[in-house]
Write a protein that binds this DNA or RNA. Structure first.
Length: 607
DNA sequence: GCGGATCAC
DNA sequence: TATGGTGATCCGC
């Protein structure tokens, strides 16, 4: 496994956090090897000296300074605070929050165990018991054997090889996983047609209704669901049962049912590390270092109250109580806010070659937007230097952007003043979207639209995200990814945190519903721009016509005014009573010191 | 509206 | 030999 005699890396306070950072974000997630410290040391060692390492070091230093400043503010605030009084205020909030507890729903979170790896095992049984990973440059997943060595999803292949020299690397086979995912999803859906799909291997259900209708206990229902998947696919599923989404998701392997008794819930939260809370990543974990587990939140309530701006008191108090959203509603297409494409490559400093990459990305994005029926008003360029520093530059228009040339030229315009550059990534993203399909179908149920099924099929091709797995780049799939919204819709239990309903479903499930259903009642549709009747059965023609209309400036303006109401039916305000993700707030004076432009001396990569 | 940062999957 | 891609949100300006 690991060399126990290797000399320890000197552990100054600075390197401790860096070593952990280098180990990657999923280190605290799944159950991993015993001696994570030793593994982290090796990872740091093989990374040392690389540009990647230097960038991580820089970010770690900045973060450390930023946290130090927040802690100084904390000290200041504490000095002049009447702790008793603050605690009394906090206690009142706890009482109010407690009143929101809703124990009536039965929520189930299921995910496939080591999905990619187990699918590979089905076809290659000789891999049984061997350490292997899926993916080439960056691992998408690791077998259980490999995980014992500290190999994780998201890890660079050469680092994984260092940890486990006999590691077998399997090429990624999206089609295989996609087919299997569809089978599994079809089974899951029988238990809740409104389930939230989160990636190809993860689903959130509400089985309240199902259990009532079938007169079935939750455990029995979930047992049956897991058994059905096992029988029909030979894959295993883990499930968490609880009365809200956050509790259901925080489960051990196998099947776990958390009692709906208040005491059981609070006891469960007591030992839950705050890192497990949705929205608490590596950064916020460090910010909240002194808190540790959710059980510690209460005793820190005064500090949290006073530092609400940084810590988010409502969020943390709810976490302590184990209160979270229990609303399970599938993702709606109109919730989408952006669409983009980006590509990583070997560092390039030649301007023309960089522009070629930009053009490729523009083409990808145009295809994706056309195939899925989106236009947008803001174009954002993203680029990553060979030093791994990331920058974005944006430009807004007063017309709808759909075409490759518009995006390419905008990107070029934004990039030009930044030269000279040596880049390892370039990307484009379009926001302020106009849903052309919705416009084309106003007043008509989208599912009933002929011609849109081919898109449904594309979207269905590959569900977005990866569970705890990581995707390797694959341009073939770029057209089929769907976002996961982070807002909740009028939950009966107040969800003050956008994050807590992060797991949500995709439009394709809805579109799938109506497959093979009713014959087209309408043969033509009005163009959303010029209102002319277009052959609705020919979707390509419809889109081509829309593109044509949009290409006329005068009409674009008209559309901008008229269709923005129609195009975003999600103009529904998401009753944001609360201020949202307070944990991500940062120190303003820290930001002021940030470089606003890339450092010219570090950009030009002379060979 | 823009840019940086964080997070999830 | 080579550390990913898509999308969302928040903050401070």
């Amino acid at each position: 496994m690991v060399d126990a005699n290797a000399k320890p890396l000197e552990q100054s306070q600075d390197t401790a956090s860096l070593v952990k950072r280098l180990a990657g974000p999923s280190v605290t997630k799944a159950g991993l090897a015993k001696d994570q410290t030793e593994i982290n040391r090796i990872i740091a060692e093989v990374s040392k000296g690389s540009k990647f390492y230097e960038n991580e070091k820089r970010k770690d230093k900045e973060l450390t300074e930023r946290i130090a400043k927040i802690l100084r503010i904390k000290d200041e605030v504490l000095k002049e605070a009447d702790i008793r009084r603050v605690e009394a205020d906090a206690d009142r909030l706890f009482v109010d929050l407690e009143a929101e507890r809703d124990l009536t729903q039965i929520i189930v979170h299921v995910d496939m165990d080591a999905f990619y790896a187990n699918v590979e095992l089905l076809r290659s049984p000789e891999l049984e018991g061997k350490p292997f990973g899926v993916g080439k440059g960056v691992l998408s997943t690791a077998s259980y054997e490999a995980r014992k060595y500290g190999v994780r999803s998201g890890m660079a292949g050469f680092v994984a090889k260092k940890l486990c020299p006999e590691l077998i690397l399997m090429p990624i086979d999206f089609q295989k996983y996609s087919e299997m995912s569809k089978k599994v999803m079809a089974i899951f859906k029988q238990y809740d047609p409104n389930m939230i799909v989160a990636g190809c291997d993860e689903v959130m259900h509400s089985i309240t209704k199902y259990c009532n209708e079938h007169n079935m206990a939750p455990d029995e229902c979930v047992q049956r669901m897991r058994e059905q998947v096992k029988v029909e696919t030979r894959l295993t599923v883990s499930a968490g049962i609880a009365h809200n989404k956050m509790l259901a998701k925080n489960k051990p392997n196998g099947q776990f049912h958390l009692s709906s008794e208040r005491e059981a819930v609070v006891a469960f939260m007591r030992d839950l590390p705050i890192r497990k809370l949705p929205g608490v990543g590596r950064v916020n974990e460090r910010l909240l270092e002194s808190i540790g587990s959710c059980g510690d939140i209460y005793e820190h309530r005064a500090v949290i109250w006073l530092m609400d701006h940084y810590f988010g008191k409502t969020f943390l108090f709810k976490a302590h109580l184990g209160i979270a959203s229990n609303v399970v509603q599938p993702y709606q297409r109109e919730e989408r806010k952006s669409i983009g494409a980006e590509r990583t490559f070997n560092p390039i400093d030649d301007q023309n070659k960089i522009l070629e990459k930009l053009e490729e990305v523009s083409i990808e994005l145009e295809n994706d937007m056309r195939e899925n029926g989106w236009a947008g008003k803001t174009v954002t360029l993203k680029y990553k230097l060979d030093t791994y520093q990331v920058f974005t530059r944006a430009k807004s228009f007063n017309r709808w952007i759909t075409r490759k040339d518009d995006m390419f030229n905008t990107g070029k315009e934004l990039l030009k003043p930044e030269f000279p550059l040596c880049l390892r990534l370039i990307g484009l993203r379009v926001t302020k979207l106009n849903d052309l399909h919705a416009s084309a179908n106003q007043g008509i149920k989208r599912d009933a639209m002929p011609g849109f099924h081919e898109h449904a099929a594309e979207m269905d091709e590959w569900p977005p995200g990866e569970g705890d797995e990581y995707l390797e780049g694959d341009e073939e799939n770029s057209a089929s990814r769907v976002p996961k919204p982070t807002s909740s819709r009028n939950p009966p239990i107040i969800s003050t945190r956008p994050m807590d309903s992060r797991i949500d479903a995709e439009a394709h499930m809805r579109l799938q519903d109506s497959e093979d259903e009713d014959e087209p009642a309408l043969r033509t549709q009005p163009c959303p721009v010029c209102a002319r009747e277009i052959d609705a059965a020919d979707n390509l023609a419809l889109n081509a016509h829309i593109d044509f209309c949009l290409s006329k400036d005068a009409i674009k303006q008209a559309t901008a005014a008229s269709s923005s109401d129609v195009a975003t039916p999600s103009n529904k305000k998401k009753g944001k009573g609360n201020k949202g993700n307070a944990l991500t707030r940062t120190l303003s004076d820290w930001k002021k010191k940030e470089e606003k432009r890339p450092d010219r001396t570090r950009r030009g990569k002379k060979k």
